[in-house]
Design a protein around this nucleic acid. Structure first.
Length: 476
RNA sequence: GGUCCCAUCGUCUAGUGGUUAGGACGCUGGCCUCUCACGCCGGAGACCGGGGUUCAACUCCCCGUGGGACUACCA
């Protein structure tokens, strides 16, 4: 077999990671980043690693970790290694900080937060760069007992650049980069330092992450080089925006993937929606997970931010509901029915109910709403709709239909539909004069599955009972 | 302010110098029809602006303009 020289080929030793910080739930932006990582790993037979970035002890919570894991699992984004916690590696970071200090690539800085803030504000006011002024960079004497942070001694001349898999070559003048803090006063390491140590020690080959990290990348590259680690490849995926083109946030509506689950979305719909946000494969819109894996290519990820569009997500969800397995949907629908205090016990077969609703619901929530009448007989009727028919007419329709229905059994949907046609032709009625009143009698309203579907699903006996009740109602 | 990134219908996008600029969501006209949906057929709808390069620019370059990110002892 010939070995291809093309970049991106033969990457079976590819190692990628998703590294959320546990300061909230898994949001759709993070989910998409995770998805792209997962897809690339699956496609190239690499490893997908989950790492929890909890170096900020104050803001990190166990609840958030659980919420993120729950979201990942729901979406089916299984990981090969982890979850690893940065907080478990504090001693290791410390070791590497010391190494850098020993060789003079890092130094103690005694500047106080107040001093730094003051200098920064002054610089801003005077229109200068608000970067660290290097006050302690050349300090020779050590101040005993004074609190300090450790700063990385960054190169001040030249440029740092990298070839981003998505954005192309990006170059930064080193003079724009100041000496970043790698260890806080309390001895804990900071984010930019930890990612480098972790990505290096986990032998990550390709870092796929949000666009908002582009500016951190040159600093991290300098750290890799100072530490003597190989620099991984980078791929920065653009942000997801809200309808007003501002960064997606709660005020744009739901951003948590679990919230979408609770609103009745299917995981495959959300995944399909997310994969198309920023990535494309010609004119294709619908992707099964195996198609996604097969067709995914990081080079086809777009460079610009995209707006989250719930309408399209709804369309995809409707698509997957329409084509989904009724049994699975029935199970997924259960909690939504419970939330409506509907019990399916003793009622129609839920799977049959689902089948009548698959083309009529965009979400499981909507399906649940539409399913209620099957289990709870109407206690009132759409009076406005009923008013469109003459009372006497209604009576004769109900009577005629009841008589027909009374002596049939075992009919399927087509059979029941044919039976209604008979009623029409025998009495000189139009289907509209018969179907709609019966629909109201059976469901209480005007929007429901086809008459035949309802009668068969409900069962002839229950249908007759409901028609009788309606008959009594209009007699009042 | 500085640095970096981005720019095709309202939205998601295809497009890699020569196309009637394609598809999808949404919107909309019609068909189907017992309601609601589904489905099918049709319609409106875009290359941010200005300079170059070229026989020819949506496509390449530059400058604007407009968005966004970062500029923390957050990640």
């Amino acid at each position: 077999m010939k070995v291809s020289k093309h970049k991106g080929d033969d990457m079976s030793d590819l190692r990628v990671r998703f590294a959320p910080s546990p300061t909230g739930y898994l949001h759709v932006g993070g989910a998409r980043t995770a998805l792209f990582n997962w897809l690339l790993a699956k496609k190239l037979g690499g490893s997908f690693i989950l790492r929890i970035e909890d170096t900020d002890v104050d803001r990190s919570t166990k609840e958030s970790v659980d919420a993120i894991l729950e979201g990942m699992k729901w979406l089916g984004l299984n990981w090969d290694e982890g979850p690893f916690y940065q907080s478990d590696s504090f001693p290791i970071y410390k070791e590497y900080v010391q190494k850098l200090v020993d060789v003079g690539k890092a130094y103690k800085c005694y500047c106080t937060v107040e001093d730094l803030d003051a200098k920064r504000n002054l610089a801003m006011q005077e229109g200068r760069k608000p970067k660290y002024d290097g006050a302690c960079r050349e300090r020779r004497e050590l101040l005993e007992g004074q609190p300090y942070v450790i700063r990385f001694r960054a190169p001040q001349a030249g440029v740092t650049s990298f070839d981003d898999l998505i954005k192309g070559t990006i170059t930064f003048p080193n003079e724009e980069l100041d000496d970043l803090i790698i260890q806080r006063t309390d001895g804990t390491p900071t984010y930019n330092f930890c990612v480098v140590i972790d990505d290096a020690s986990m032998r990550i080959t390709t870092v796929i992450r949000g666009d908002d990290h582009v500016n951190n990348t040159p600093r991290q590259i300098q750290l890799y080089e100072a530490l003597g680690f190989p620099v991984p490849q980078f791929a920065h995926v653009p942000m997801i925006l809200g309808s007003d083109k501002a960064r997606l946030s709660k005020r744009h509506g739901a951003t948590s993937v679990i919230a979408y689950r609770d609103m009745g979305f299917l995981p495959e719909a959300l995944i399909n929606y997310l994969v198309r946000l920023g990535w494309s494969h010609g004119d294709d819109e619908i992707f099964s997970s195996s198609e996604m894996i097969q067709k995914f290519d990081i080079n086809n990820v777009g460079r610009s931010a995209s707006v989250f569009n719930t309408e399209k997500l709804l369309w995809l969800n409707a698509h997957y509901i329409k084509n989904g397995d009724p049994e699975r949907l029935a199970n997924l629908l259960l909690p939504h029915l419970s939330a409506r205090e509907v019990t399916t016990l003793g009622g129609p077969d839920l799977m049959s109910v689902v089948k009548t609703l698959q083309e009529r619901a965009q979400t499981l929530e909507e399906m649940a709403d539409r399913a209620v009448f099957y289990y709870n007989a109407p206690v009132s009727y759409d009076e406005a709709a009923l008013a469109k028919f003459d009372k006497e007419q209604l009576k004769s329709v109900f009577t005629a239909v009841s008589m027909k229905l009374a002596d049939v059994s075992g009919l399927d949907v087509a059979g029941i539909d044919a039976l209604f046609k008979e009623v029409c032709s025998e009495n000189g009625w139009k289907m509209g004069q018969v179907g709609q009143p019966v629909r109201i009698a059976l469901s209480g309203g005007t929007q429901a599955p086809g008459i035949g579907e309802i009668v068969v699903t409900l069962g002839v006996e229950e249908a007759l009972r409901r028609i009788q009740k309606a008959q009594e109602f209009i007699a009042l």
